Simulated scan of single mutants.
Amino acid sequence: MRVGFAGTPEFASTALERIVAAGFTVPLVLTQPDRPAGRGLQLQASAVKQTAIAHGIPVAQPRSLRLDGNYPDEAQAGQAALQAAQLDVLVVAAYGLLLPQWVLDLPRLGCLNIHASLLPRWRGAAPIHRAIEAGDAHTGVTIMQMDAGLDTGAMCLVERLPIAPDDTTASLHDKLAALGAEMIVQALTQAQTAPLPQTPQPLDGITYAHKIAKDEAWLDWSHSAQVLERKLRAFTPFPGGAAQYSGETLKIWQAHAQAQAHNAPPGQVLAADAHGVVVACGSGVLCLTQLQRAGGKRLAAGDFLRGFSLPVGSQLQRP
């Protein structure tokens, strides 16, 4: 079986590694163009491109695959590469480009997507973040037969995974990446001898995982401590949590909720010591245990307070 692959970040490269290790022929990899990264803003290859190069797999990086779009020359080059690859199937994982119908129709078995949620819950760009933020008890991976809609295709394989109370997006990402890699190899193996199941997605329970915006980092202290704790776990490693104090932005990376009654206004510091910075919330309190000043390092609360004063009664705010 000739398996093309389209993906960009680490989540996708985990699957590509497993597909190659399983012995499938991968004649072509599609990935996003190199992007500036780091303080020097030097161009950096995606995780998928680095994996493909390590295995000697040809790589194409069109900015678009729409033949009538803004980059017709790149789209035509991508079309030529896909046609020459003579694919049986195209596996897609966090690619970052919409696939036009001609791509969906090109491989003999169509396009299979590795999606990190239990569809139809959390269609869209940020399913891992939004599942944690919403307090879901479970998530999982769906191997989906792609169609022209946004994560609307028929489900081929589905596996559930519990979300641990201390899971962050970083830790849950790694679990789901490993699960997705295992499942796509299972799907490809099965597809060699028999058609994959095609179960339409339910019409009930559809939710959308909108892309994470940087300004979502600002914490609204009128929310409950439990909601804010989930938000911080969901926004680790990006964009973290943020609050303002005395004109300075503080980043908040770790915290835990406590069911402590109080009469203080939301955002007020109730205690600050080596155990953490305790902040009043709409209900309960949030104990901040890892913080960071602009341009500084992430520090445990005790170390942070040795260089920055947050006296009891201080008011943390958002812009």
Rank of each mutant, 00 (worst) to 15 (best):
T14H: 13
H173M: 09
L286N: 08
S246L: 04
R130L: 01
L150N: 09
R66G: 04
A54F: 00
A15G: 15
G153A: 14
H262A: 10
T193Q: 11
Q83V: 09
G110L: 03
A47S: 15
P62Y: 00
P165E: 14
M144D: 08
P195Y: 03
Q254G: 00
T139Q: 04
V48I: 09
Y95C: 10
A178N: 15
A93Q: 08
Q258E: 15
L157V: 12
L106R: 09
A280R: 08
Q317A: 15
G241C: 05
T289R: 11
Q76A: 15
D73W: 02
L119V: 06
L291N: 04
S46E: 04
L286I: 12
A257T: 06
L250F: 13
L65S: 04
P33Q: 14
V89W: 00
Q290M: 14
L99K: 04
Y71V: 07
V29N: 01
L82F: 04
A272E: 11
Q76H: 15
H262E: 12
I19S: 02
E182V: 03
H115V: 06
Q32N: 07
L30E: 02
R318Q: 12
G284T: 11
Q86I: 01
Q190K: 14
Y95V: 05
I252H: 06
A22G: 08
H115P: 02
A177D: 05
L30Y: 02
A37L: 05
K251E: 13
T199R: 15
L41S: 11
P237I: 11
E17D: 15
C156P: 01
A54L: 01
Q32S: 07
D136Y: 01
Q317D: 03
D34Q: 11
Q226V: 13
A257E: 01
H262V: 11
A137T: 08
R35H: 13
L41E: 06
R130C: 04
A164L: 13
A274L: 08
V158P: 10
L288W: 12
R39Q: 12
D215L: 06
G4K: 01
H115W: 03
G313M: 10
S64H: 00
A259W: 06
P165V: 10
G240E: 02
L30D: 03
R130G: 00
A154I: 02
H256R: 14
H173E: 14
Q50K: 08
A194C: 06
Q315D: 07
A12G: 07
D68Q: 14
G7A: 13
R66C: 09
L161D: 08
L232E: 06
A271F: 07
D88V: 00
D167M: 05
